[in-house]
Design a protein around this nucleic acid. Structure first.
Lengths: 328, 328
DNA sequence: CTTGGTCATCGAAGCGCTTCGACAGAGCTC
DNA sequence: GAGCTCTGTCGAAGCGCTTCGATGACCAAG
């Protein structure tokens, strides 16, 4: 069936038209009579014709492929990345595009390569950091792109991310709604802030904004001992503390232990809410409510924005995805 | 710098040679004098030239891209998939190839599409099942490919997978070496067997082969209650039981609880070894030794085999990766 | 000195597609 | 019924590369 090397000429011959007519039927760029179009489509189906991607890209200067650069090396939470990749591919296919997978370690040179070789039409850059050398390269290359995350200078770029400030607000509200007056946000470790300033601050602002005057924010390292100590100090300094939001993935388990040690019964006389992946919140006992990074939604939004850019439409420079609180 | 649209003609002009000469310098397919080659390479560097992927693919009938079809939808352990993807991209880049990401839900039609459009030269199919419609499509299309996993009829295909029989042996040996006489393998739930018969049996055979006559294999569902019951029955039926291997990811945590309830102190008077991802074995207390699916190695091997096939070299039809036991 | 053989390079053809301009024929208008 | 404008279709050019055959330069052998 779908023979090797069915060309547009074969389709044209079978339908009794010129190759250009086949092209126009397929692209819809000129009006074609319904009868001709039907015959062409029938020939396409009969022969199992698919345009040669290289030829198409050469002639039309559109590859039909977008690149996705993921930080595969370290750091990011693997399942989240996978969800992201999955969402991006699915959405891209809806637009008849394929997705080329790149790793962040190819860096700016990798971007230059794909741009110059015209192997992709555009690019989605995952996990953008505040000072990211790739961003500068992107500007220079003029390759249409969408970033996940916000670099220091986002001027002229299209960025998508979770609305972390809203996430902070949502967590505060969750605790307040449960009658907690004294609450705290247990923040991330220094390492995280170092890489991506901004997003931690935004959580904190959202949290404080929505919480009462007796809310506090405590930074927190993530090794067991430090968490234990931090929680103990926190409880001592605020004896009325009734709820905390944890924005520090690796610390969540330790926090739960520390609270148990202090005699707090989470879910009853004490409330905890997590900002992080589902797995983290599900692994505790009891399971915790959480606000997660909505990887699929981010990916879909990013792809959709990129498609619009490729079509010459405009898109907002900055898009913030509304956080969702999952109760458990 | 890397201007938009630097062509081979630009490079040729700058180096004072014909375009074909540039091509030959770059591909090494004809001998070129060192002086000329140097001049050409200098021009390439100066102009930031990268060949147009589409043009190259059209002229040479080689896209320089391989597809990787992942089961993004469900089932498989996400982190493992991600490691796999990462390993594949890294290895592919070493061979100057890019990787196109596809999802398994495109099915046979997706394979037909990428084959006919010549967008990729070859394909890596992840998580192949015993009866997999994609395998048939693959045969029909004649697209060079490497499968991860073994379908029912692997004749003429190139397959790579973990050597599950060896994994079973390794686990048995671990327990035997620790002086356990009575040991058991706690197997997977029915659902897993239904999809991919074969690999569970192989673990079992390896286990029994290496273990003493008093070893047993117990199948086990993975909900908490069933695990609890299964473990209890197991301990009753074999009072001398001193170690078990668990080949059932979701059950591991429950097994540990059941053992604790029964008064067994794992790591001291009782031994447990896991066949599964690192995360599963690290999440328990104490952490357990485990044999993991070596995703990166599998990916690298698969890509390497595919490259050889694309170069017309031959590769073994079946490759089994040696399992590694990680002590903790 | 011819002849034959390498070696390094060139020019042209062609890969399969899109796109542009051209052009018949149909349907208007006046 | 002459002059329009539209519509639907065709043919040819050209996208940037690889590859094949040809060619000149040079050298060794006869």
């Amino acid at each position: 069936m779908a023979g090797r090397g069915v060309t547009i000429a074969d389709v044209a011959a079978r339908a009794g038209v010129a190759a250009s007519t086949v092209s126009y039927v397929l692209s819809g760029k000129r009006s074609i009579s319904p009868e001709t179009a039907d015959r062409v489509m029938a020939a396409v189906a009969d022969l199992g014709y698919h345009p040669h991607a290289g030829a198409r890209s050469l002639a039309s200067r559109r590859a039909g492929v977008v690149a996705m650069m993921l930080p595969l090396r370290d750091g990011m939470h693997l399942p989240v990345l996978m969800q992201f990749a999955s969402g991006a591919v699915t959405e891209a296919r809806r637009h008849d595009q394929d997705v080329l997978l790149m790793t962040a370690d190819e860096g700016p040179a990798g971007l230059a390569r794909v741009a110059a070789s015209a192997i992709v039409d555009g690019l989605i850059l995952m996990d953008v950091e505040v000072r990211d050398p790739r961003v500068e390269a992107l500007r220079r290359l003029g390759l249409p792109s969408v970033l996940i995350g916000f670099p220091a200078d986002a001027e002229g770029l299209t960025c998508v991310d979770l609305d972390f400030e809203a996430a902070g607000r949502v967590c505060a509200r969750y605790l307040v709604d449960r009658g907690c007056d004294d609450i705290a946000l247990l923040g991330a470790s220094e390492a995280v802030y170092a890489r991506r300033t901004g997003f931690a601050e935004r959580v904190r602002e959202g949290f404080l904004h929505r919480a009462g005057p007796r809310a506090e924010v405590w930074p927190c390292p993530d090794d067991p001992a430090s968490v234990q100590r931090t929680v103990k100090e926190l409880l001592t300094s605020k004896p009325e503390l009734a709820g905390i939001a944890v924005h520090n993935e690796p610390a969540v388990g330790h926090v739960m232990h520390a609270l148990a040690d202090a005699g707090k019964r989470v879910g009853e006389d004490f409330h905890v809410v997590v900002i992080g992946p589902d797995e983290v919140a599900e692994r505790t006992h009891p399971q915790l409510p959480s606000v997660l990074v909505p990887a699929e939604t981010l990916a879909e939004t990013a792809v959709r924005h990129l498609m619009r850019k490729l079509d010459g439409l405009d898109v907002p420079e900055s898009t913030l995805i509304e956080p969702q609180l999952t109760l458990r």
